[in-house]
Write a protein that binds this DNA or RNA. Structure first.
Lengths: 266, 266
DNA sequence: ACTACTGTCACCCTCTTAATCACAAAAGAG
DNA sequence: CTCTTTTGTGATTAAGAGGGTGACAGTAGT
């Protein structure tokens, strides 16, 4: 019932800290200290349920990470850095690490990614599908045909389309309503709009995409009767590449038939 | 000998992926796939040394995260998203999570952080000390006195000083050479420069800081004979707060004596 | 001097995950 | 069509990390 916004600051913070690599004790200790500002091992143990004797280890771990300062007295006292400073610390560290990852990965990327002919690839999850679509947009050279329900036309997709358009790629966009069309026309001046190929919004269809007439993607919202009604993750897509690819052949036929009525295929 | 730049793209990427929460198998599998572009379980097993039978689990994990697509055929084939898309995926996810953390932590931050009177807090590590100094700069209300060796006067510190100056805080900066002083004057118009209190650059001293006459920090570069000569992490600082705090009293005396010679303290 | 508390250490137990194996289904060769 | 090889799934074992508990010497405070 209660999703991510702020269910319980305690647990939310603890969960994130753990996923950032802190031990459970360290995470709970830091959260306790963040509420207390300053405290002894006993204080921390009481509000965090961390065994008192283990608060010392946890605090060491936090001190090594620069999240907690230690007052050498008896009893020792501990001091947590501010929420803002802590967040920034993680932000920087993680930014660093993604940069390292990016550099390392691009080093070993293959020269030419082979373009498959046969078969159909699968992608699950709305976020992943969107990522894939954006990746394909970025590699487009001549033409992008994209048909989508409006809910899935997020800003990052519009950005990617806009960039492609700036590169000289021709954009053909379908499935969007009149008011949204106007907004799009501002962002992507060269885009051509076309009507839905069929009754689009009633079905649980997601998107249709064709790039340069040789790479296609279809997705469906698999909100089966079992899935939670508003779960944004339940999207499944398939895609294929290559002139002979079966999925490409089928979609190409559909789009061509609809977009160029005077050029019937044989 | 060979630090972070790019020792070995393989291991660097694997390490980062693991720290981002992937299992060792998943990390190695993804790196292998990133080099191959496309491959079967056998291919992956050969270049990654992941047992073939466990490539399937690893690939499932990666598929759930949206990093790998699966071609349902026999043998199954696997496809890795591009280095750029992968990096962006992580970037977004981590940005999201730091935002959640920031929100959660500031929710439970105490109303007023008690200002300690007695005792001295310790901080280790150059990064942590810098973070602490910045945090203190941000809370400054009237005056910042800061003396540092130039190596430690990084851009983020200058930014923080500049913001404080814009708030109307008076800045007194010491220990920097003439050429650097000029540059600083541009960024922080209102700053006052003063000479080093003593032969500063010869010692292994790090920084001296005083905020509003009631919070002070001292650091030293503990490059003992044992530590590696250029290790940037070997800095240790202590700080204290409150009018009665011993560290504050001592530093206040020193700074006042030097900065206001005509007002001798008693 | 006595009591309570603090900080350190050692230990056990559980859970995760790497690693190996067994086996049925599928593909390919002859 | 049969035999052999490969593929994918599952169960099982082993090792390590980390959570949880308790013993104990040193210290503070009465």
């Amino acid at each position: 019932m209660n999703n991510d916004p702020i269910e319980d600051p305690q647990s939310a913070a603890i969960e994130q800290l753990e996923r950032f690599g802190l031990s459970a004790y360290a995470a709970r200790t830091f959260v306790a200290l963040a509420s207390l500002g300053t405290g002894t091992a006993r204080d921390i143990s009481q509000v965090s349920d961390v065994p008192r004797t283990r608060v010392y280890d946890a605090v060491d771990e936090l001190h090594d990470r620069g999240l907690v300062d230690i007052l050498q007295s008896s009893p020792k006292q501990f001091w947590a850095i501010s929420a803002e400073t802590a967040s920034r610390t993680f932000e920087h560290e993680l930014q660093n690490r993604t940069d390292i990852l990016r550099a390392a990965l691009s080093e070993l990327e293959p020269i030419e990614r082979r373009t498959e002919q046969r078969g159909v690839w699968t992608v699950d999850g709305q976020r992943s599908v969107t990522d894939r679509v954006i990746e394909f947009f970025e590699n487009a050279e001549e033409e992008i045909v994209y048909m989508t329900v409006e809910d899935l036309l997020t800003d990052d997709l519009i950005d990617a389309l806009s960039e492609a358009a700036a590169r000289g790629v021709s954009i053909k966009l379908g499935g969007v309503s009149a008011p949204v069309q106007e907004r799009i026309q501002d962002d992507i001046p060269g885009a051509t709009m076309f009507e839905s190929l069929w009754v689009w919004s009633d079905t649980s269809a997601g998107r249709l995409m064709m790039i340069d007439g040789r790479k296609t993607l279809v997705s469906a919202l698999v909100n089966g009767a079992d899935a939670s009604p508003s779960d944004p993750r339940s999207e499944t897509a398939i895609w294929g590449e290559g002139d002979r690819n079966s999925l490409v052949v089928v979609l190409k036929a559909i789009f061509t038939w609809r977009l160029d009525p005077e050029t019937p295929e044989e």
